[in-house]
Write a protein that binds this DNA or RNA. Structure first.
Lengths: 270, 270
DNA sequence: CAGTGGTCTAGACCACTGG
DNA sequence: CAGTGGTCTAGACCACTGC
């Protein structure tokens, strides 16, 4: 691309906003101007969403992508940089750029912010997972709203307990849109060795990319306290998480209760 | 700067790692290679820390800084970019780059992650602040450890209650190193109209840049419940925050209790 | 209109990885 | 050694702000 040329490359179409020299309706303002690298970014996002590259696999090199989209390397570089800071891609110098995954990481649980009170990281070995229940049901109104479904749509509901050092610590209730997770059952959940989000990736092609949590202090009821093996009416951390795939589509709702007598939820504020 | 020249500019000294053509001890490995923009970044950080530019004021333009440090504009640009994503600086197109501040923001409380259950943002107006106590005391062992002081060092201790829509919601206990906050008393706290971090900036030149929180579910004792006007033994969110200035120096410890019956703590997971 | 940050390019070289 | 991402430069132009 020569600089100073008003014409734009046909990345997929052309520059989305009104450009000088390009015919554009003079009326209808607020085109907002989308820079080239943003367009490249969304093209790469689309390829990720379409599954053009597998989880954990490498995407084409910057040079290749620059040639494909007919832009300079620096422009695809900026696009990839942003996708990397959003944790959709992972750059590794000398090796390439890879599709982010929940599997094969040293950080076993990407979205879990719970840390033991003493002994820093994973010093107590891997978590023990116990699937209590997994069945298909219909979405209640609040569940449907958070998952952007209609009330009564089919959802899979999973209940499980996570233990650390043999102490039950997390009680989770998970809802998934059944249409996207056909064939999921308690057997497959129990058989899968890694984190649940890794199962979603490898068996259903659903990558969780971002999540939002709402945290409250609550008193566990007797059933919850029994599953967590605590005394009755212990204060617990209620963590309601909605996890999103690409394009901010919600794909999982997870209501969790954390015991915080031996652990705490840690958060970094920028 | 000509490219391909092995010699490096004397930003403040010179490139910190072994460079070809520059005399450097061939022994003693692991220089780790610090790129130029990182050196510029730390120079700008030092100027921020030294108070060369006031809170909320603009720093020199990219062109000026490039001239000052004898590097290209793109290099200082990358340095500023990183400082901006770390929230030390704020870029405003067409206007300049500004020193981040806790004052004069639309987001009144930069580090507060508490949101009302309904009615999105600040719909219930500003918080009411009530200073309960402010006195000088000596740091206990745990307080000293978190503030990187010695046990028994002088600290200011502040207790206050924050109310939203006239409902007491947050009970805070704050510890500050007394040596850095000389002259702080309950009168000045009550007189200051803005957030406490804005007071720290404007009256003591201390900018809080980053914070870390540990969150647990607890039962409030009777004194705490009284201040928060709840029934006895209500589950509360315990939020222990350490706030840092530049260079990861801890400057504030804050133990807070949040009522989460009408609010929740919200967190985004990337 | 001048000045700021924001985008885009082209090219050179450096550091890291693996065969 | 070739290939990848990472750094640095120089220069042109664009978009936004305020005088």
């Amino acid at each position: 691309m020569k600089p100073a040329t008003p014409s734009r490359p046909a990345a997929t179409g052309s520059r989305s906003s009104a450009q000088p020299g390009i015919s554009s309706p003079p009326a209808s303002r607020t085109p907002a101007f989308s820079p080239l690298y943003q367009q490249i970014k969304s093209l790469i996002s689309q390829s990720l969403q379409a599954g053009e590259w597998k989880s954990g696999a490498s995407i084409p090199s910057e040079t290749e992508l620059a040639a494909r989209y007919k832009v300079s390397q620096g422009t695809v570089r900026k696009a990839i940089d942003e996708l990397a800071t959003e944790n959709l891609l992972i750059r590794r110098q000398g090796k390439g750029t890879f599709v982010a995954t929940h599997a094969e990481q040293q950080v076993q649980y990407r979205f879990l912010r719970l840390f033991p009170e003493q002994g820093d990281l994973g010093s107590q070995g891997p978590a023990q997972r116990q699937i209590v229940d997994c069945h298909k049901t219909r979405a209640s109104a609040p569940v449907a709203r958070k998952l952007q479904l209609r009330t009564g749509d089919a959802v899979m509901q999973i209940q499980r307990v996570l233990s650390f050092a043999d102490i039950p610590t997390i009680l989770e209730n998970i809802w998934l849109p059944a249409a996207r997770f056909k064939g999921l059952d308690i057997g497959r959940l129990r058989a899968f060795p890694g984190p649940m989000y890794a199962l979603f990736e490898s068996e259903f092609g659903m990558r969780m990319v971002r999540a939002q949590e709402e945290i409250r202090a609550v008193l566990g009821d007797s059933a919850q306290c029994k599953l967590l093996q605590t005394g009755p009416y212990v204060p617990l951390l209620s963590v309601e998480r909605v996890a999103f795939t690409y394009n901010d589509v919600p794909m999982e709702l997870r209501h969790a209760l954390y015991r915080t007598d031996r652990h705490h939820y840690r958060n970094e504020l920028g």
